[in-house]
């Protein structure tokens, strides 16, 4: 398969970026999207090493930078905005799980980084998502230290609640929800963590404090507010549900007015 790629190139956070156009040929349909970019990068390097970095058909000598690691949809490191959709045109997958068979031969593909104020560009398609870590650091955990905890089976947890907690805990922190949202809201990401912990007895103790701290941190870091369009849910590769945002709101109200934190469906 052959493709024409329009790729966002930006040297670093301070410089202005622009689209550059590249062509790739003879790509196998079984090739993953990132492997296709590997092939492009191999071409850029080879071409420039031969032409001594001058008069090359590639005006930018260094290969296209993009984040990735596990390449199997679990680390949350990859994330490209492909033809206007975070993680591209397939449902329930990350960019690294997207395969070229999802495109048509001859397609033009537009590739951009996440665009959201709290995620500044570092280089080309790589952005800085440390804001997510900061939100978690503000309280997205159960405050236990190592050792001195009760036996794991001492508190039975209804399977239904454990399963719902797991549904929420599957979030990989990729940031697609923020990139998809016109307000750059992080409500799905935060909602997922708040729900995961609030659904379990171990996490309920701090539920009020947690939601307050995380939401304040999210605001402070410049994420926008949620206006219930749910573009986040539509683009989330782990299909994290909007119900998690509702649960967050419920926890938020509880912490203001008081109320019980017993999990509800």
């Amino acid at each position: 398969m052959n493709f024409k790629l329009h790729i966002w190139r930006q040297e670093n956070a301070k410089t202005k970026g622009r689209f550059e156009t590249y062509k790739v040929r003879d790509i196998s349909p079984d090739c993953s999207f990132l492997e296709m970019l590997d092939i492009l990068n191999e071409q850029i390097i080879s071409e420039n090493s031969k032409s001594g970095n001058q008069n090359s058909k590639f005006p930018i000598a260094h290969p296209v930078c993009f984040d990735n690691d596990c390449r199997e949809g679990i680390c949350g490191m990859c994330g490209l905005y492909i033809n206007g959709r975070p993680h591209g045109n397939d449902d329930g997958v990350t960019t690294c799980q997207l395969h070229m068979r999802k495109f048509k031969d001859g397609d033009e593909i537009w590739i951009e980084p996440w665009r959201a104020k709290p995620f500044p560009v570092i280089c080309d398609l790589v952005v800085d998502r440390s804001a997510f870590d900061k939100i978690i650091q503000s309280g997205g955990y159960v405050s236990v230290t190592t050792g001195g905890v009760p036996d794991a089976n001492s508190i039975p947890i209804p399977k239904r609640h454990a399963d719902m907690a797991m549904d929420a805990a599957e979030c990989i922190g990729c940031g697609a929800c923020v990139a998809a949202c016109k307000n750059a809201s992080a409500m799905l990401f935060v909602g997922a963590k708040v729900s995961h912990l609030a659904l379990l007895p171990q996490g309920q103790v701090e539920a009020s404090e947690r939601v307050k701290k995380m939401v304040c941190k999210m605001d402070e870091l410049g994420f926008g507010s949620c206006t219930n369009t749910y573009a986040c849910e539509a683009e989330c590769p782990k299909q994290i549900k909007r119900q998690n945002i509702a649960r967050l709101n419920r926890e938020w109200i509880c912490q203001i007015f008081g109320g019980n934190h017993k999990p509800q469906d």
Binding site: Y141, V142, V144, T146, G147, V149, P150, D151, A152, P156, I157, P158, K159, A162, D163, A165, M166, A169, H196, L197, L200, Q202, G203
Partner: peptide
């Protein structure tokens, strides 16, 4: 396992 459960790891039940 005790430690992880206390942290809120949602093991299968």
């Amino acid at each position: 396992i005790d430690q992880c459960v206390a942290q809120g790891v949602p093991f299968a039940r």
